[in-house]
Amino acid sequence: MIALSVNLNKVATLRNTRTYNYPSVVRAARTVLDAGAAGITIHPRPDARHILEEDVLDLAELMKEPSYSKREFNIEGYPDARFLALVKRIKPNQVTLVPDTPSQLTSDHGWNLLDQNSFLFPIVAELKSIGCRVSLFSDAEPDFIEEIAKIGSDRIEIYTGYYFNTFDTPQNALVLKKIADTAKAARNFGLGINAGHDLTLKNLPTLVKSIPWIDEVSIGHHFIGEALWMGLEEAVWAYNAKLVLKGT
């Protein structure tokens, strides 16, 4: 079964519209983990628009509890000095490096590996030296995979925004093929494969059927959107049901 990592950013976005800690990001994390999510994902941005540093520290303590010791704690972000210091402090299971600028609404493109490989190489090595698995956010471009492998990343996270944007259109088959070709290239280089951005209950089954060797999906916006109607627990059950590989 493909692992579901629930992105909690939107819970923090709602919480930050008030001056008190409600809804609690930690409570949301505990709820989705207890319901069967394989892990949680957060993105502590420099402007603290959603996840705050105190959230990162509180969630790190939560993930130390025996009930969650085998679950995944994934932190994503641009590897500036602030972000790297925070990661070194808590040592999450996985660090997903994204090429976001501070003003971006969300992660919407992968690294330009031809220009940024020398920048990423020592960062990836340092993060791996403290015990973190490293994943690089990547566009669906098979030609980039060799560079990612050379940098030393353990995994890639394939950006699936275009897959969402073209779903139910004639262009989607080409987009899906490019994602599958990228995933095949990653597997050939021994890289693990994550996927994320605008994955939904509707479009997940097609992705899973086409690329059954995906290791993990990170889902936030649409997950929280569905949870408004069905609740956090039921949303975990619904998404996990879409991630079960037929015949397993």
Rank of each mutant, 00 (worst) to 15 (best):
A3R: 15
N9V: 00
N9K: 00
N9I: 01
N9Y: 09
K10A: 11
K10D: 02
K10Q: 09
T13I: 14
T13N: 12
R15Y: 06
T19Q: 14
Y20G: 07
Y20W: 14
Y22R: 15
P23S: 13
V26F: 03
A29W: 04
R30T: 06
R30E: 15
T31D: 06
D34N: 15
A38I: 00
A38G: 15
I40H: 06
T41L: 08
T41E: 00
I42D: 02
H43P: 03
R45E: 05
P46H: 10
D47E: 10
H50D: 09
L52I: 00
D55R: 05
D58K: 14
D58V: 01
L59V: 07
L59R: 06
L59P: 09
A60D: 11
K64E: 09
P66N: 04
P66W: 04
S67W: 02
S67H: 09
E76L: 00
E76Y: 02
P79Q: 07
P79T: 01
A81N: 13
A81F: 05
L84H: 10
L86K: 07
K88M: 03
R89W: 01
P92G: 06
P92E: 07
Q94R: 14
T96D: 04
T96K: 02
L97W: 10
P99E: 01
P99K: 08
P99Q: 04
Q104C: 10
T106L: 12
D108C: 07
D108N: 09
G110S: 09
N112Y: 07
L114C: 06
S118M: 08
F119N: 15
L120K: 00
L120A: 11
F121E: 15
P122D: 01
I123N: 08
V124S: 03
V124L: 08
A125F: 08
I130C: 01
R133T: 05
S135C: 10
A140R: 05
D143R: 14
I145H: 03
I145M: 05
I148Q: 11
A149I: 11
A149Q: 10
D154H: 12
I156F: 09
E157D: 11
G161D: 00
G161Q: 08
Y162L: 12
Y162A: 14
F164Y: 13
F164D: 06
N165V: 01
T166P: 09
T166F: 12
A185K: 12
A185S: 15
F189N: 12
F189M: 08
G190N: 01
G192I: 03
N194E: 11
G196D: 04
H197Q: 05
D198Q: 13
L199N: 00
K202Q: 15
P205Y: 00
T206E: 15
V208N: 11
V208R: 07
K209H: 13
S210A: 15
S210N: 15
S210Y: 09
P212K: 02
I214N: 08
E216P: 05
G220T: 07
F223L: 05
I224C: 13
G225Y: 01
L228P: 04
L228Q: 14
M230P: 11
M230T: 13
L232S: 02
L232M: 11
E233Y: 01
E234R: 10
A235V: 01
A235Y: 01
A235R: 11
A238C: 12
Y239G: 05
Y239W: 02
Y239D: 04
A241M: 09
L243F: 02
G247W: 03
G247C: 05
